[in-house]
């Protein structure tokens, strides 16, 4: 009898865990912003547009100059692929998977031409920024700052376009 009870409790706990792991996908999608930054050691300029990233850049990199070369912001629909064109024949494919607590689950693939350089699945804090860095470009190094913010249903008047793939003109943040 006790054995059955333990089994039942364990089953319920596992079912609860499975439900907790389930990703939710509200009606609205995720506002994804990709800022492409060119970092180098020629000069000592820090682009004012990158002020929110100053602390992470200082802590992670040793470059003397950082310049925003491209910024793009889009509303990504859940489970739909979004492609962001990047400098140097590269592009980033992002698929928002769902919400888990206060985190956004994303699939992220960095392509170098036709070659998938990195393919990763990550959970990012809502309105958090994840950095991908390393590719060389124009004598410096590219840093891609990927920001994802859950789009709440109330905020419908933002001047964003919902797209289902393909590039959009760059929007400066």
């Amino acid at each position: 009898m006790i054995g059955h009870l333990v089994l039942l409790v364990a089953s319920l706990a596992m079912a609860g865990g499975a439900v907790a792991e389930t990703l939710t996908t509200p009606e609205e999608g995720v506002e994804v912003r990709i800022d492409t930054v060119l970092a180098g050691n020629s000069g000592k300029a820090f682009d004012p547009a990158l002020r929110p990233l100053k602390q992470p850049f200082r802590g992670l990199f040793g470059y003397s100059s950082y310049r925003l070369v491209q910024g793009e912001r889009r509303l990504a629909v859940w489970r739909r692929e979004e492609q962001f064109m990047l400098p140097g024949q590269r592009y980033l494919v992002i698929i928002p998977r769902g919400i888990q607590g206060d985190r956004v689950s994303l699939s992220l693939m960095l392509m170098d031409g036709s070659r998938p350089l990195v393919n990763t699945m990550l959970s990012l804090k809502d309105n958090g920024t994840f950095l991908v860095a390393g590719p060389r470009y124009n004598g410096g190094v590219l840093i891609f700052a990927i920001n994802a913010r859950i789009r709440k249903p109330a905020a419908k008047n933002l001047p964003l376009q919902a797209s289902t793939g393909g590039g959009q003109p760059a929007t400066q943040p």
Binding site: G59, V118, A133
Partner: peptide, 25 residues
């Protein structure tokens, strides 16, 4: 949660002040 790469190597570094994670390729 997962990662596959065709690059020679990658490294993950986190900046502690803002908990910013950087994937270096």
């Amino acid at each position: 949660d997962s990662m596959q790469t065709t690059a020679d190597s990658v490294a993950l570094v986190t900046e502690p002040e803002t908990n910013t994670t950087m994937l270096w390729i």
